[in-house]
């Protein structure tokens, strides 16, 4: 068993005191794994992952990254600590060029390292290279997701955390995004993602957790989870559709 990168223990979090949305959820992410967090609408998946990234106030539990406690760290220090987050929506600076979107994320890199790092991203995502001078708001849905991921990867994160990367994309782009994530993992990056699209996510994931009412109810190998009756009853019984995508998940 390889080393643990991200260790979340009994996390409690919510926007209003006394009204926790995440109620004691625990997960573990090991090096070079893809871990998927699933759950029905309103299960607190999105709040869970945002709390890890420092965007939702945490009221209990701990978050350890490489053994270091990052529970109380402000959101803007997460990149430096090694956690890069890709939000579900509005995850690019629309009025800035593709290249500036990448550059603005390089705050923690050495100045002379930046051009080479940007070239590496262009090599990994040739589409972005072609559109480097375009305002990011003019990109297609899939390209935006690509830019958001590249922007997160550029700082060599220990773990890449994504909130529903397939949300709002057309089926063609959905498979493209998941192929992209599978490719990124091959290069050794650890990935944690929350998804509504269980089938596609489980297809690329190593392990998965099912979150219900703010707690982790089930853990398993991704490929087995798809056929697990308990999971099917908890969650997969009501197949998620894109139309019913929840707001405050």
């Amino acid at each position: 068993m390889s080393e643990t990168v991200l260790d979340v223990r009994d996390l409690e979090a919510g926007y209003e005191p006394g009204v926790p949305i995440v109620r004691g959820a625990s997960i573990t992410v090991r090096k070079s794994e893809i871990v998927v967090v699933l759950g029905p609408n309103g299960a607190g998946k999105s709040s869970f992952i945002k709390a890890i990234a420092g965007l939702v106030p945490i009221t209990g539990g701990t978050v350890l990254l490489d053994g270091k406690d990052i529970t109380a760290a402000p959101a803007h220090t997460m990149v430096r600590l090694g956690l890069a987050f890709v939000p579900q929506t509005e995850n690019i600076f629309q009025l800035m060029s593709v290249e500036d979107n990448l550059k603005v994320a390089c705050g923690i890199l050495e100045r002379r390292e930046i051009p080479a790092r940007i070239d590496e991203m262009y090599a990994a995502f040739p589409d972005l290279m072609r559109q480097r001078r375009t305002a990011a708001g003019n990109l297609s849905g899939g390209q935006r997701q690509m830019l958001a991921v590249a922007r997160a990867l550029i700082v060599h994160p220990k773990v890449l955390v994504l909130d529903e990367p397939s949300a709002g994309l057309s089926p063609k782009f959905v498979s493209m995004v998941f192929e992209m994530l599978a490719g990124i993992r091959k290069s050794g990056v650890t990935i944690l993602l929350v998804e509504q699209n269980a089938k596609a996510a489980l297809a690329i994931g190593d392990r998965a957790y099912v979150l219900v009412e703010g707690k982790d109810r089930h853990e398993g190998i991704a490929s087995e989870l798809w056929n697990d009756p308990v999971v099917a009853e908890l969650y997969l019984g009501q197949r998620p559709s894109h139309a019913s995508k929840g707001g405050v998940a």
């Binding site: 990234a53 959101a75 803007h76 997460m78 990149v79 430096r80 987050f85 939000p87 705050g107 923690i108």
Partner: peptide, 9 residues
């Protein structure tokens, strides 16, 4: 919000 996420103080 995104500015904070990308590490801007």
């Amino acid at each position: 919000a995104l500015a904070r996420i990308v590490g801007i103080d």
